[in-house]
Design a protein around this nucleic acid. Structure first.
Length: 465
RNA sequence: GGUGGGUUGGCCGAGAGGCGAGGCAACGGACUGCAAAUCCGUGUACACGGGUUCAAAUCCCGUACCCACCUCCA
């Protein structure tokens, strides 16, 4: 079976056929760096990371571009609120996002372009659109440039919407409406508003100083780094319209074929609500990582298929953490560090539109089989190697340096604790040999009160945090 | 109004015409001095009402409820 991917443009699973044999070009709409990233924000990053890893595993040479939107209305508004320069806010939040991705073992993309660094490319694209008659500068001298939706007959093709079926744009600002030929026309370029916007947020252009509209950056950057046509474009479902629809319209109207496949991940909600609206801070990545390890959060996210809506709950995250621990325990006991090969079932699951839940089921099967062998004193290195290989593809390899030691533990600290605990374990072993179980249990309780679990195995006691 | 998605056992979560994904929890058993860990066993779940079929959680029709997008949103 070859790799099959659900394409939201055609609303069906299709065999992945790259434009160029052996190569895959990916573009993911990254975040607008305006606040600390929360669990929902990070899902597209994790899902695309898995996609990227899987394509590499399949032998593709992957070029993965994930942008950062570092200038927009919200950033400007928030920075003004906080009384600091917008670029300072954007840069700080960008670093915060980098930390979040790193904590979840989301590998850096091939390149992470920022909107502000690509104004010339956007100006070039807008100029091309004006030349072709698909865009026009507003006549009021504001310096705004709009995409002419009516001039592009296939506008709406990505989301299967007819222009006239769309709800009338609720642009409350009648001034804004007056500038547009059609209410659905969207801004490619926003003229600088001297009275309310800092000069630092304006770049020179043929239409006067201003800043880019939201959609144009992705078209410009995807074009620059992946070429006029590329393989997969992704983002959250909410981006399908208007963002992706507009990206596609403006790119195609400029003569660029654009993406072959559209991949959209579903939402993560809390209490049935979008995360942005509810509990803005408790689900922020730094906050979650105070209680959970990054590997646990990542595992939790991958237990659901990327196209399935997830109702976030700490109970479910706890369950995932417990399940993951079982896998890690097996690996510890099998004492194997070499990755083996992937089973066909796992490969099939991943090839079927990145079926991570099915893939994880295969993984658990291997763990159970391995444990069974271990229990009967047999060698389980084949299973352990298989498990490691599977975890590796999912970005969950426990020994990955990304987790900082063993899944987040500190190596030196582990050694120190080991030295202390093993002394106590010796005393306990002696007590047990003397059948002084009261004393043996007292030692165990003492160790346990420090948060360390003891388990007796045929080869002696071992401890885990 | 338009477009798309959803409703699966105590919980999480796959599947998408026949053979009970998987995980967590629970209960029983094995192992253990007792535990822990591990293994074995135990569940007749697919919103509701019709229909198609030898066979439907999966297809069709209808109903209910939920959600997303159409405005900044991962």
């Amino acid at each position: 079976m070859t790799f099959r991917l659900y394409d939201s443009a055609t609303r069906g699973v299709r065999d992945f056929a790259p434009l160029e044999e052996g190569k895959a070009g990916l573009y993911l709409c990254g975040l607008t760096v305006q606040s600390e990233p929360h669990v929902g924000h990070v899902r597209s990053g994790v899902d695309f990371d898995v996609l990227q890893r899987w394509l590499r595993h399949l032998g593709f040479e992957v070029t993965f571009i994930r942008n950062v939107t570092d200038i927009d209305d919200k950033i400007l508004a928030k920075a003004a609120e906080q009384g600091r320069p917008w670029y300072n806010l954007a840069y700080e939040m960008h670093r915060e996002l980098d930390r979040a991705y790193a904590a979840l073992n989301v590998a850096p993309p091939t390149y992470e372009p920022a909107a502000t660094g690509h104004v010339p490319e956007m100006v070039e694209l807008i100029t091309e659109l004006i030349t072709r008659g698909h865009a026009y500068p507003a006549e009021d001298g504001s310096g705004d440039v709009y995409f002419d939706v009516r001039s592009w007959p296939s506008y709406g093709e990505l989301t299967r919407q007819g222009i006239d079926d769309m709800e009338a744009a609720t642009d409350v600002d009648p001034q804004m409406l007056a500038k547009k030929r059609d209410p659905r026309d969207f801004a490619l370029w926003k003229g600088w508003k001297k009275e309310s916007e800092p000069e630092t947020a304006a770049w020179p252009s043929p239409w006067g100083p201003g800043r880019p509209g939201w959609h144009i950056e992705c078209s410009a950057m995807a074009g620059k780094y992946l070429g006029p046509a590329f393989d997969i474009h992704g983002g959250g479902v909410d981006l399908r319209f208007p963002h992706h629809e507009n990206e596609q319209a403006q790119s195609r109207a400029a003569g660029r074929p654009f993406a072959s496949y559209w991949m959209h991940n579903a939402w993560i909600t809390t209490a049935g609500e979008k995360m942005s609206k509810s509990l803005g801070n408790s689900l922020t990545i730094p906050a979650v990582l105070e209680t959970y390890r990054g590997i646990e959060l990542r595992f939790y996210l991958l237990m659901a298929h990327y196209r399935s809506h997830v109702e976030f709950s700490f109970e479910a995250l706890d369950e995932a953490a417990v399940g993951l621990r079982r896998i890690e325990n097996f690996l510890d006991r099998a004492a194997v560090t070499e990755s083996g090969s992937l089973s066909q079932d796992f490969v099939d699951a991943m090839n079927d539109d990145l079926g991570t839940p099915a893939a994880i089921a295969v993984l658990y099967d291997a763990v159970r089989e391995g444990n069974r062998l271990l229990a009967s004193g047999d060698d389980a290195s084949t299973q352990a190697g298989e498990v490691l290989a599977m975890l590796d593809v999912l970005g969950l390899h426990p020994h990955d340096p990304a987790w900082g030691g063993r899944g987040g533990d500190d190596v030196k600290l582990t050694a120190a604790v080991d030295a202390l605990v093993s002394g106590l374990l010796e005393q306990r072993a002696r007590a047990r040999a003397d059948k002084d179980f009261a004393r043996a249990d007292a030692i165990r309780d003492q160790i346990k009160s420090a948060g360390i679990e003891i388990e007796d195995t045929p080869s002696g006691a071992r401890w885990t945090l």
